[in-house]
Amino acid sequence: AQASVVANQLIPINTRLTLVMMRSEVVTPVGIPAEDIPALVSMQVNRAVPLGTTLMPDMVKGYA
């Protein structure tokens, strides 16, 4: 199954992502693919992302 990017902590709005904030997990619905984690580093989220939330393309500025 495809692993997705999941928030490893609460990520406040406009925060630049770092590796420690993200983990890969097989979840439904599928979000951003886990292999994109390196590309997500330093991108900003456009909303607060609670712990355990799957990151979707529309949550990350410049990803989609």
Results as ranks from 00 to 15, higher is better:
residue 34 A to G: 13
residue 42 S to H: 09
residue 25 E to Q: 11
residue 60 V to P: 00
residue 15 T to L: 05
residue 63 Y to S: 03
residue 33 P to T: 08
residue 4 S to Q: 02
residue 56 M to S: 10
residue 9 Q to W: 13
residue 48 A to L: 09
residue 2 Q to M: 06
residue 61 K to R: 15
residue 5 V to W: 02
residue 19 L to D: 04
residue 58 D to M: 11
residue 12 P to A: 12
residue 19 L to K: 06
residue 61 K to S: 15
residue 58 D to L: 14
residue 22 M to E: 00
residue 3 A to Y: 13
residue 64 A to Y: 03
residue 33 P to N: 08
residue 49 V to P: 01
residue 2 Q to P: 15
residue 46 N to I: 12
residue 23 R to L: 04
residue 55 L to G: 01
residue 44 Q to Y: 15
residue 9 Q to R: 13
residue 2 Q to E: 13
residue 7 A to K: 01
residue 7 A to G: 03
residue 13 I to L: 07
residue 27 V to A: 06
residue 47 R to P: 02
residue 22 M to R: 00
residue 26 V to A: 09
residue 28 T to K: 05
residue 41 V to M: 09
residue 13 I to H: 15
residue 63 Y to N: 03
residue 18 T to I: 06
residue 47 R to D: 10
residue 35 E to K: 09
residue 2 Q to R: 05
residue 7 A to R: 01
residue 25 E to P: 01
residue 62 G to Q: 11
residue 42 S to I: 03
residue 8 N to L: 09
residue 43 M to I: 04
residue 23 R to M: 04
residue 62 G to T: 05
residue 32 I to H: 00
residue 51 L to F: 14
residue 60 V to R: 02
residue 62 G to I: 05
residue 1 A to I: 13
residue 8 N to P: 02
residue 23 R to N: 05
residue 13 I to C: 15
residue 41 V to W: 11
residue 14 N to K: 06
residue 41 V to A: 08
residue 19 L to R: 09
residue 36 D to F: 10
residue 47 R to W: 06
residue 5 V to K: 00
residue 15 T to W: 13
residue 5 V to I: 14
residue 26 V to C: 05
residue 33 P to W: 15
residue 5 V to C: 04
residue 35 E to R: 06
residue 34 A to N: 05
residue 61 K to G: 08
residue 37 I to A: 07
residue 38 P to W: 12
residue 32 I to Y: 02
residue 24 S to F: 11
residue 21 M to R: 03
residue 30 V to W: 13
residue 37 I to C: 04
residue 26 V to Y: 08
residue 32 I to T: 01
residue 59 M to T: 05
residue 39 A to M: 15
residue 6 V to S: 02
residue 55 L to V: 10
residue 43 M to L: 14
residue 12 P to G: 07
residue 19 L to T: 06
residue 2 Q to S: 10
residue 59 M to G: 03
residue 16 R to E: 05
residue 31 G to R: 01
residue 39 A to Y: 14
residue 52 G to M: 06
residue 47 R to L: 09
residue 10 L to W: 09
residue 8 N to F: 04
residue 21 M to Q: 03
residue 10 L to D: 11
residue 40 L to N: 00
residue 9 Q to M: 14
residue 46 N to L: 14
residue 50 P to L: 14
residue 4 S to C: 04
residue 36 D to T: 14
residue 64 A to E: 10
residue 10 L to C: 09
residue 50 P to W: 06
residue 34 A to Y: 08
residue 50 P to I: 08
residue 31 G to L: 02
residue 52 G to R: 04
residue 17 L to T: 00
residue 20 V to S: 08
residue 44 Q to C: 05
residue 28 T to L: 08
residue 43 M to A: 12
residue 10 L to Y: 15
residue 7 A to P: 02
residue 35 E to A: 11
residue 57 P to M: 06
residue 33 P to V: 15
residue 34 A to F: 06
residue 47 R to C: 04
residue 54 T to H: 03
residue 15 T to N: 05
residue 51 L to G: 10
residue 1 A to Y: 11
residue 3 A to M: 14
residue 13 I to S: 10
residue 40 L to A: 01
residue 10 L to S: 11
residue 52 G to Y: 06
residue 33 P to D: 05
residue 64 A to M: 08
residue 60 V to M: 05
residue 64 A to P: 08
residue 48 A to G: 08
residue 64 A to D: 08
residue 37 I to T: 07
residue 9 Q to V: 13
residue 22 M to S: 00
residue 34 A to P: 07
residue 19 L to P: 06
residue 61 K to C: 06
residue 33 P to Q: 07
residue 64 A to L: 11
residue 20 V to H: 14
residue 54 T to F: 03
residue 31 G to P: 01
residue 7 A to L: 03
residue 8 N to Q: 10
residue 45 V to L: 08
residue 24 S to A: 14
residue 32 I to R: 00
residue 32 I to N: 01
residue 23 R to G: 05
residue 27 V to W: 03
residue 50 P to H: 07
residue 28 T to N: 10
residue 56 M to K: 08
residue 62 G to C: 06
residue 40 L to D: 00
residue 11 I to W: 02
residue 46 N to R: 12
